[in-house]
Amino acid sequence: MTRLSLGLGLLGLLALAAAAAPLVAAWLGHDPFAPDLLARFAPPSAAHPLGTDDLGRDILTRLLYGARVSLAVGLAAALAAAAIGTLAGLLAAWRGGVADALVMRFADFMLALPALPLLVLLAAADPSRIGLPARGEAAGDVLRIVVILALFGWVGVARLARAAALATLSRDHVRAARALGASEPRILLRHVLPALLPPVAVATALAVAGAILAESTLSFLGLGISPPAPSWGNMLANAQELVFSAPWAAVWPGLAIMATVAACTLVADGIRRRRGGV
């Protein structure tokens, strides 16, 4: 079994579990949001395979609904970062000069700073002050976190894309295309962009991992996805308060995060090895 197929298989399973969340909820007869005060702190049993939390909510159903949020945020943030980063890196390499310097200095700026404190500050800002939905509303929360994480994630992709684009722009097939009179957009799209895809794919896989970790950390700190909407991070925030009464609540969300992030790392490693890199 190669790393790539192991990682992709794991991600597929997780996506399947997230997709099946309503089915499992219906089958077990639990609502992930409805408190059941008579069933608080229930240890794992047939009715509640992973037990219940302090409000008597079924942990398995919340875990599966949380998967939807966490996976969606991770994927959306990473894809947005990949798109912006590829475009910025490509343009920087192609235009050179001031544009290149601007992008690269901004990248240096972001990479020199401690990410987490900055993320905390950004996530604590109140989006309603500039006319966006306020913090604490489910849809607004997801969008807010995706935007913040994409803002941080594109820098790494841009550096990789720029390096690959610079290398490709000086290759013979690009010069040949130019000599044949191909237009600049055509050269960039047809001859340079395809060469960027492998490094960008690796960077995107790692960005998904980073985004899921960052989302869970922010949600854990109470700055990401707000309860009652479940996300793996805010389930763990709740679990920390329950270490005495329901220690089992802390196990599964963490395992889910770890499995997802490890799967993304394996995919990134797998692509890199397949391309003959280290």
Binding site: T217, G233, V243, F244, A250, G254, I257, M258, A262, L266
Partner: peptide, 23 residues
């Protein structure tokens, strides 16, 4: 190493608390 890198720091902290402080 892969699993260690994938583990959220705060989760590790909670697990250590459960193991060494609570249990």
């Amino acid at each position: 190493a892969v699993m260690g890198q994938a583990m959220p720091t705060f989760w590790l902290g909670i697990l250590l608390i459960i193991a060494f402080a609570v249990t």
